[in-house]
Design a protein around this nucleic acid. Structure first.
Length: 442
DNA sequence: TCTGGGGTCCTAGGACCC
DNA sequence: TCTGGGGTCCTAGGACCC
């Protein structure tokens, strides 16, 4: 906690719905709901007019329609949201170099780096009002709620206190007075499951939370969250405003109107999703080692399966092959409502750099040998030897697309660098070590 | 036909290494 | 022969956020 109120949290009010009302004047003053409009959709954002009817974020669109049938139901225009968000973030960065976006509609700003003459409450209040006015200007009239306090934790709580279009500056020294009467659910990270555990322990307010020992909290909610809650209950929070946080994972998922039962269709969907993920990775100059699939069954039980490659990839075929293989091991009888593919373990360098550096030992081949039963110079033949260990730099393998060298292997995955006619050295692809399409050249 | 999509962080257990 | 602990990596699942 700082001696001054120098952390600002800004939150655009009902952001997606507000952009829609800005761009379509006939929607102004009317209930607007942005979210999934299909049978299994949920509400992303409800305008304040729609909230008056009890429509809330994360509510099923079905229920929202029941509560507010006359609202406009829109599926969202993310390009418009992104560009509006970018304009707001630019205003904030104009004020301080230390801006940490949390999402399209939220960010922290470190006012200690804003070049102010001092950090008195009156000074930061004036700056906050100026920022709100600037945001309104550059967005064409969108309102923002702002909180300013001595920490991220309190700034975020403050911005929530006077929504919409509000400003709350918490005077240093008054943090605990403000915090103690509030319900524990105001603490970011305290959701329904944690509220229930605390409730069973007789804890409802922050004041009650403050009376629980750290050991007891760790017993109740686990080590990390227990320690965090112990400190937050005392308004202790020293987390820095961190700009440019690195992406940790990229994923694509979809929920289908009716449950999927056809394995071939599932396989095709996962392939498309894998291609999309790889495309996004490439567009960001990223590659990743761990491919994860997510499957939500008809009864909402959610399964995930993952596999980690020896080296990062952004190759669509590699991600897709691995994703399909992971899917094959799951029992999907009964139907699947959601499928998804993600890549994590990201590196900010791409595959090409890696095999370019490691390929000097090998001379380019003039042409790829035929895949089927093609004798090599010594007269050996492709032979399926079944799943076993693969030795990097030693084994020549026959796989789906031709012949290649084992370039990496471990933890059930083998990576092959293929020989190709067109672009030696060939592409790198990874397979499960027990992939039936792999065989060893002996 | 209750319950999206894109993320982050944490936990717990097992493998593996020293 | 029996018995260690610590650290790291990986996998699966869950809570949470907007």
């Amino acid at each position: 906690m700082r001696p001054h109120a120098s952390v600002l949290h800004l939150d655009l009010d009902a952001f997606f719905a507000a952009v829609e009302q800005r761009d379509k004047p006939s929607l102004r003053g009317k209930p607007v709901v942005v979210g999934g409009t299909g049978g299994r959709g949920v509400v992303s954002t409800a305008s304040y007019e729609a909230r008056a009817y009890g429509v809330r974020s994360a509510m099923s669109t079905r229920e929202a329609r029941a509560r507010c049938p006359h609202a406009a139901y829109l599926s969202g225009r993310f390009e418009a949201y992104r560009s509006t968000s970018a304009a707001v973030m630019a205003v904030l960065r104009d004020c301080s170099p230390l801006v940490e976006p949390l999402s399209l509609d939220e960010a922290f700003v470190d006012l200690a780096e804003a070049g102010l003459p001092d950090l008195e409450v009156s000074t930061v209040t004036a700056l906050a009002e100026e920022l709100r006015a600037r945001v309104r200007e550059v967005t064409g009239g969108l309102t923002a709620s702002v909180g300013v306090a001595s920490s991220k934790f309190l700034a975020k709580i403050a911005s929530d206190l006077r929504k919409p279009d509000g400003l709350v500056v918490i005077e240093p020294g008054t943090e605990l007075d403000l915090l103690r009467p509030l319900h524990v659910s105001v603490i970011p990270g305290v959701g329904p499951a944690t509220v229930e555990r605390l409730r069973r322990a007789g804890v409802h307010t922050v004041a009650e939370l403050e009376r629980v020992s750290q050991e007891e909290l760790v017993r109740l909610v686990g080590k990390a969250q227990g320690q965090a809650l112990f400190h937050l209950a005392r308004a202790e929070d020293d987390r820095a405003v961190v700009p440019d946080r690195e992406t940790k994972s990229v994923s694509v998922e979809g929920t289908y109107e009716t449950d999927l039962t056809d394995r071939q269709q599932m396989s095709a969907i996962v392939t498309r999703q894998a291609n999309e993920v790889a495309k996004r990775l490439r567009a960001s100059g990223l590659s990743g080692r761990t491919v994860t699939i997510k499957v939500r069954l008809y009864d909402f039980t959610t399964l995930s399966r993952s596999s980690t490659l020896p080296a990062p990839t952004d190759d669509p075929a590699t991600v897709a092959r691995l994703a399909r293989t992971l899917l094959e091991d799951l029992d999907t009888s009964g139907g699947v409502r959601l499928l998804g593919v993600g890549v994590s373990g990201l590196a900010d360098w791409i595959q090409e750099d890696l095999f370019a550096a490691g390929s000097e030992a090998e001379a380019p081949e003039e042409s790829a040998p035929d895949v089927e039963d093609e004798p090599d110079q010594a007269g050996a033949r492709w032979r399926d030897t079944g799943p076993q260990s693969w030795a990097p730099g030693m084994d020549v393998v026959h796989a789906e697309h031709g012949r290649g060298w084992v370039w990496g292997s471990g933890r059930g995955v083998v990576t092959v660098r293929f020989e190709t006619a067109e672009t030696p050295p060939g592409p790198v692809r990874s397979f499960r070590a027990d992939d039936p399409s792999l065989s060893r050249w002996q």
